[in-house]
Every structure is written in C-alpha cells, then in structure tokens.
C-alpha cells in the first residue's frame, strides 16, 4: 500500500483543520469501541499484567496492585545458583555452590526477611490509603454520574458580552463548543478544551478549534501570560471548594496581566434531585465563586443571566 503515489493536490490550506477533525473522529471512534466491546478492557488488563511481569518496578506505571505483586516476586533472593548443562561447567558450579551455600543462605535469609517485612508494610500502607480515600469520599463516581450540561446559548452569549476587547481566550470543558462559537466574534483567537472526544465532535465539524485534553492538565502546561481570558464551565461542578480555591490560585499565575476569568457555574440549589444528591459537596454557587476570588486577591463581579441552571456569570480580574 505504501507504493501508492497519489499526485492529487491536497487542500493544504485546509489540511490542518481537516486532520484535526479526523483526530476528533478517531477519539470518538475509540471511545465507542470501548463501550461496545467490553473485551477490549480485559485485553488491556492482560497486556498490562504481561508487561508488569517482565518490566522492573518503576517502569510499569501507577498500577499499585501489580507493582506490589512484582515487588514481592523479585524481593526473594534465591541462593540456588543455576548449574547449567555443560558437564565440566556443571561440576565446577556444583562445587562452588556447595562451598558457598551456607554463607549465602545465611545472608539471603536476612535480606529475604527484610524484604518480606517491607512488602507487608507496603501492603498495609496501600490498604490504609485505600480506606482513607473511601473515607474522604474521593472514590470515583465515573459511570454513575451524568456529565454536566453545557451552558445554554443565553449563558454563552452573556459570557461573550463580558469580553470588550479582542483577546486570546480558552474555554475549559467546552463540550460541543457553544461558548467557543459565541466568543469567536469578540476574541482575536479562541479555542476549547474538552476531555470527552464524543462531545466535541459536532463543534469540530462546524470548524471550531476544539482539542481533546483534560482541562486541569492543559492549565498545568499553559505558558503563563499567553492567555488573556479563561472561561471555566462544566468540570468545575465536579470539584470541591478547596480544589476550586487551588484552581483560582493557579489561574492567577497563568493569566496575562489584566486578564479576565469568566465562570459559568450552576447554582447547586438549581440542580435536579439526582444531580443534587450525587454531586453533594461538589461545585459552588456563583456568589461563592465571587467570594472566593475576592478573598484570593481578585475583583469579581456577578452578572445575572436568565437561565434555568446558572443564575449569574462571574467576571473576575486580578491586579
């Protein structure tokens, strides 16, 4: 197949956009395959186990249970030297083994006892951390909880109205890109970040610059001063107040001087019953956002919006 030499002229000026759309479609396709074929997950587990069995600890990623198993497997020092098959070598090795066995067995016994104790300690530490995670309520609700609704067109328009000069903006957790689309007319450049490839596909098809990434990871690597406006929506409703405070602190460092932080957060009182119960303790009302931002050195204003979920958008600046 590589021999094909298509001398057709590719639409070079559109190719970047085209390939971006293809990437989003591939991400969505992969997600769909995972959902439709549960055996894929089992197969991945088989691959991970096979790799963990041959790779040294520290090279197999954060799969704690496999890592602990591997630690236990290689922690035992075996003093029985393999003797080999060639007759002459075998006899020599046997002799060496006989002479050195008692001493090495004595050393190995102490090392093994130490490793055994260390392994058991790690296991107990692992169990205690797990218990702590459950007690702290940080266990994931993935699969039981619906994704946060994308802000309505009314909210998207209200956010766009907050931008008065052409700026470089990013919308975190942009969904299908409704807010990005509204901001396009007022920003010099704007793009969206969305972890769910399936959600952003319609927006990519409309030609919007939407990228698959985790919002917090994206913020983490954003070069300070390169963005004038950050819009927060969606994912912030799955964060606890202390995490939100840390997020605001991080944004203070990332925003350009005089930059704006725009927040479209659902008022927890306006959630439906199921959402309210499952998200209990997660997300904060616009008024609380304004309070937090003010306390963290910013200047926040609330702009009321006529919307079922979101009572006001928050506009904040940091001096």
């Amino acid at each position: 197949m590589a021999e094909q030499s298509p001398e057709v002229s590719a639409p070079a000026e559109h190719f970047e956009l085209y390939i971006r759309k293809v990437r989003a479609e591939i991400e969505a396709e992969a997600k769909l395959r995972r959902m439709q074929d549960p055996e894929i997950e089992q197969q991945e587990a088989v691959i991970d186990r096979a790799w963990a069995a041959v790779a040294p600890p520290g090279a197999t990623g954060p799969v704690e249970s496999m890592l602990l198993g591997r630690v236990e497997q290689i922690a035992m020092v075996d003093v029985m030297v393999p003797v080999g098959h060639r007759p002459g070598v075998r006899e020599v090795k046997r002799l060496i083994r006989k002479i050195s066995y008692w001493y090495f067995a004595y050393i190995a016994s102490q090392v093994n006892t130490f490793h055994n104790a260390l392994g058991r300690y790690l296991r107990s530490l692992h169990a205690r951390v797990e218990a702590l995670e459950v007690a702290a309520g940080t266990a994931s609700l993935d699969g039981l909880i619906d994704a946060v609704d994308e802000p309505s067109e009314t909210v998207a328009a209200a956010l766009a109205n907050c931008v008065t000069t052409p700026v470089r903006a990013v919308v975190l957790s942009c969904g299908s890109g409704r807010t990005v689309e509204a901001l396009q007319n007022v920003c010099s450049s704007v793009y969206g970040i969305e972890p769910d490839a399936g959600r952003l596909l319609p927006g990519v098809s409309r030609g919007l610059d939407l990228r698959v990434d985790d919002p917090l990871t994206h913020l983490d690597v954003l070069v300070p001063g390169t963005i004038d406006a950050v819009v927060l929506q969606g994912f912030i409703e799955d964060m606890k107040p202390d995490a939100i405070a840390r997020l605001v602190e991080m944004l203070k460092e990332r925003l350009a001087i005089g930059g704006a932080l725009l927040v479209a957060a659902c008022d927890p009182d306006r959630r439906d019953v199921v959402d309210r119960d499952i998200r209990l303790g997660y997300g904060i009302a616009p008024q609380t956002w304004a309070h937090l931002i003010d306390r963290l050195g910013g200047n926040a204003t609330l702009l009321p919006v006529d919307d079922e979920r979101i009572s006001a958008v928050v506009v904040a600046r940091f001096s």
């Binding site: 197949m1 094909q4 298509p6 001398e7 057709v8 002229s9 590719a10 639409p11 390939i19 293809v22």
Partner: peptide
C-alpha cells in the same frame, strides 16, 4: 488503512 482520502492526503502532505 481504510480511508483512502485520509491516506492519500497524508502521503502528499
């Protein structure tokens, strides 16, 4: 492998 348009344009680019 399956999408000839994608493949051909990638080769050209």
């Amino acid at each position: 492998l399956d999408d000839e348009t994608v493949r051909n344009q990638m080769i050209v680019q």
